[in-house]
Nucleic acid binder design. Structure first.
Length: 502
RNA sequence: UCCUCGGUAGCUCAGUGGUAGAGCGUUCGACUGUUAAUCGAAAUGUCGUAGGUUCAAAUCCUACCCGGGGAGCCA
């Protein structure tokens, strides 16, 4: 529709024209007779220049009265200006206050995690959070674009279920008219039913895990994309996962340059991630790599690097502290800010130095048959620059519905995609078991109630065919693409252990 | 559940037994091109809570509360 005002993002197309802008004050600077207002309207940021001599008394006082996050309207001329980030600024003809804001808690300075999470509803307005949500949006569109282009049908799995797919300890249970029900952990079983109706489908919806995990990779509520394809085997499944991730990275690097710049994402490293094919290691090969001399050498090098960095930082901090006494005010401020930076990094290094020896020991002692821990996955990915695919895990560590490897009965035809740069598992999936008797045995062996799976067994009774699929964790993918250290910044209102508000 | 780090001004943090500190933010003042503007001045504290040791505790000890990171589990 046609709007009666202009969006900041569209300003480069209106140079020389007079426009009306509606927005909020992101920050302000000024001197006598001249004020610079940073206007934020959701589509971007632009600097509005208010010259006392060029506007009326009312506009000048309106501009002077604006507090951070006050809503205001500006009418002014768009001018090209090389000094500005978007290449334009607006010379105000009039400024009108729409709503003065009370003192705003989130200043353009640094804040702690708890403080910001308690104000997530306001934090969303900040630049980095804004950029991350824009990238999330682009990723979502890229996922739909890929699947729709390949002929998949998007279908929704139920959120409320009676089935526990992978154990009951991590389910949110609720009362469904006097019957126990659960929030879904995965749409996969229903996805298989839908694939038998439509051939290729994907679900895109929320999933819930009541895991008491407090780590940078876990949410209790997260969005999962689960394609399921009839007549696909494990190799075809891996092809889909690889193409999907490459399409996501391609879309974001093509369309989200400004957002990635705000996030200070290393775009070259991200582009390298899109290079297909991704290395594919069997579980057995991955175990060999994990227990190899190459892994030990890599970790030794990492430890030395951390120790060198710690030494250099400690020297710098001592020198800064000596200089602090005679420093001028501005210099003191710089030294204080640097001290905080150094302390944060030293804490990270200390944690790394505690971790690396444990990682070394656990990697060297790893025995075939166990599942990979978080550190093992990190070590595997550090050997590569792109995501890697690990396939054919021991059946004992995988879900009951996985098909066995016909060449080795100990193995399941499962696969995980591990993202580079320490982001870890973003995809898990595999080829599904097709044989009814085998599935019955598996349900019993896993101690699951057979009655709850009767409808699922129907899929094997009525035209069972080879099929495969996987689940992609949206928030982990966003974290990786944005280079964010924690999944809590990848969802508008993340739900974590101990975090239900706002 | 376990391990580990932390809680000091509105915010981010220094301060490790001897008078409670800095920067930012806020308020006031200066400044016509600033980019987290700059410069000057002012106000701002239950040092997480409760006990204990001591002439003296933000600092040492104990318990508890809250938060960060990690293990297990997983996307």
């Amino acid at each position: 529709m046609t709007e009666p005002f202009t969006r900041v993002a569209a300003l480069p197309d209106h140079v020389g024209e007079t426009v009306t802008l509606n927005g909020w004050l992101y920050n302000a600077r000024g001197s006598k007779g001249l004020r610079f207002l940073e206007l934020r309207d959701g589509s971007g940021l632009v600097q509005v220049v208010v010259n006392q001599e060029a506007v009326g008394e009312a506009s000048w006082e309106a501009a002077a009265s604006l507090t951070q996050e006050s809503a205001f309207r500006v009418v002014g001329e768009v001018r090209a200006d090389e000094r500005q980030e978007g290449g334009v600024e607006v010379q105000a003809a009039s400024v009108e206050v729409l709503a003065l804001a009370e003192p705003y808690p989130i200043t353009p300075k640094e804040h702690g995690v708890e403080f910001l999470m308690d104000r997530r509803h306001l934090w969303l307005r900040s630049r980095r959070q804004w950029a991350a949500m824009r990238v999330r949006n682009r990723i979502i569109m890229a996922i739909h674009g890929y699947f729709q282009g390949e002929g998949y049908v998007q279908m929704d799995a139920p959120v409320l279920t009676g089935n526990a797919v992978e154990g009951t300890s991590t389910l949110f249970e609720l009362d469904y008219f006097d019957e126990p029900a659960y929030l879904t952990q995965s749409g996969q079983l229903h996805g298989e039913a839908m694939a038998m109706a439509h051939g290729k489908i994907y679900t895109f919806g929320p999933t819930f895990r009541a895991e008491k995990s407090k780590t940078r990779r876990h949410l209790t509520e997260f969005w999962m994309i689960e394609p399921e394809m009839a007549f696909y085997d494990l190799d075809m499944n891996m092809d889909v996962a690889e193409e999907l991730l490459a399409a996501i990275v391609e879309a974001v690097t093509a369309d989200c340059q400004p957002e990635l710049a705000i996030l200070e994402r290393d775009v070259d490293a991200l582009r390298a991630s899109a290079q297909t094919p991704f290395p594919r290691l069997s579980y057995t090969e991955a175990v060999d790599l994990l227990t190899s001399d190459a892994t030990q050498l890599m970790l030794d090098a990492e430890q030395e690097g951390l120790e060198d960095e710690r030494h250099a930082l400690e020297q710098e901090r001592d020198q800064n502290r000596q200089a602090h006494g005679q420093a001028k005010k501005g210099e003191k401020r710089r030294i204080d800010a640097r001290e905080i930076e150094i302390n944060v990094r030293l804490d990270e290094i200390a944690e790394g130095l505690r971790n690396v020896p444990q990682w070394k020991a656990s990697a060297a002692a790893f025995e075939w048959g166990a599942d990979f821990g978080g550190s093992d996955e990190t070590i595997l990915t550090r050997h590569y620059t792109t995501p890697i695919i690990v396939h054919r895990y021991p059946a004992a560590v995988k879900a009951f519905y996985m098909k066995r490897d016909p060449e080795d009965d100990r193995l399941a035809l499962g696969m995980d995609v591990l993202a580079p740069e320490g982001y870890g598992e973003i995809i898990g999936g595999g080829e599904r078991a097709t044989d009814l008797d085998f599935l019955r045995q598996q349900v019993e062996a896993h101690g699951l109630p057979e009655s709850a799976f009767d409808w699922y067994f129907d899929l094997r009774r009525y035209g069972s065919v080879p099929h495969a699929g996987f689940g992609l964790g949206l928030e982990r993918t966003v974290a990786w693409v944005c280079g964010l250290p924690h999944v809590r910044e990848t969802a508008p209102f993340p739900r974590l252990l101990g975090r239900l508000h706002p």
